[in-house]
């Protein structure tokens, strides 16, 4: 394998998919974040923690502009990061993934990873807009979320080992499903009560799921196309005659 070519296309595809994710968030998720932070502002005015003055709004808008601009940068960083994991898993699984070309293989893997490290953890710990989280519980919530992603991801790897060794392939899927269902009930839930309006929460969650899903689709597609085009597995061989 051409190592530097492999690393380059993995980083490039993750980065590109991440930038797409960030741009999409500006249109799809930011309106909900603005609404949620608007509620926080109202609460701060009500409790006297902040005063509803022109100065407040000047500072608020420059602060929000900074945060919104960060979507693109943070998208690039997160995309490159998750894309790197995707690339490593692809490298290990590229010969067993279904499909006769790399675009099909990367899309298949993107689908598997989207389900195991995103959808399933989301069902247990769904995304929340600002105002929901209690700062006191942040470390607990971060630990639980990361733990659930790790449990689901490693369980998928584990049940794949089983899948390879048994004839009744369906049992591996049932096993993974049963294990994750058990973990779903074993793991403690998010301790924070949700006080924000229902339509804000659901609108935010739907938009968030859409943009993260677009990220996974883009990551799979771009890496598949780049792999297909540049094939890091292709090496020059000099054969003596």
């Amino acid at each position: 394998m051409k190592t530097s070519l492999f690393i380059a296309i993995v980083l490039l595809s993750g980065f590109s998919a991440g930038v797409i994710h960030g741009l999409l968030n500006l249109f799809m998720v930011e309106p909900f974040l603005d609404t949620a932070i608007g509620i926080e502002n109202k609460n701060m005015f009500a409790t006297g923690e902040a005063a509803d003055t022109p100065d407040f709004w000047v500072e608020y808008y420059s602060y929000r502009a900074w945060q919104k601009g960060g979507q693109i940068l943070a998208g690039a960083i997160l995309g490159t990061s998750v894309g790197s994991l995707f690339g490593v898993v692809l490298a290990y699984s590229r010969n067993v993934l279904p499909g006769n070309n790399f675009v099909k293989k990367t899309l298949a893997l993107a689908l598997i990873m989207w389900i195991t490290v995103y959808v399933i953890p989301f069902v247990k710990y769904p995304a929340n807009p600002p105002t929901v989280g209690d700062p006191e519980t942040i470390v607990l919530r971060q630990t639980l979320y990361l733990a659930f992603i790790a449990i689901s991801g490693f369980a998928a790897v584990g049940f794949y080992q089983l899948y390879k060794r048994i004839d009744k392939k369906l049992l591996a899927f049932i096993g993974y499903g049963a294990f994750m269902t058990a973990m779903f009930f074993v793991m403690p839930g998010n301790p924070d009560p949700i006080t924000a309006p229902e339509d804000l929460i659901s609108g935010f969650r739907i938009s968030s799921v859409i943009t993260v899903s677009v990220f996974w689709l883009a990551a799979g597609l771009i890496l598949g196309v780049l792999w297909q085009k540049f094939n890091p597995d292709k090496i020059k061989q000099t054969t003596p005659q």
């Binding site: 945060q67 960083i77 953890p121 995304a127 929340n128 979320y145 938009s207 993260v212």
Partner: peptide, 12 residues
């Protein structure tokens, strides 16, 4: 700088 993406991507 990464705050909004943290919410949008589903992190606590």
């Amino acid at each position: 700088l990464t705050h909004d993406m943290r919410h949008a991507a589903g992190f606590p």
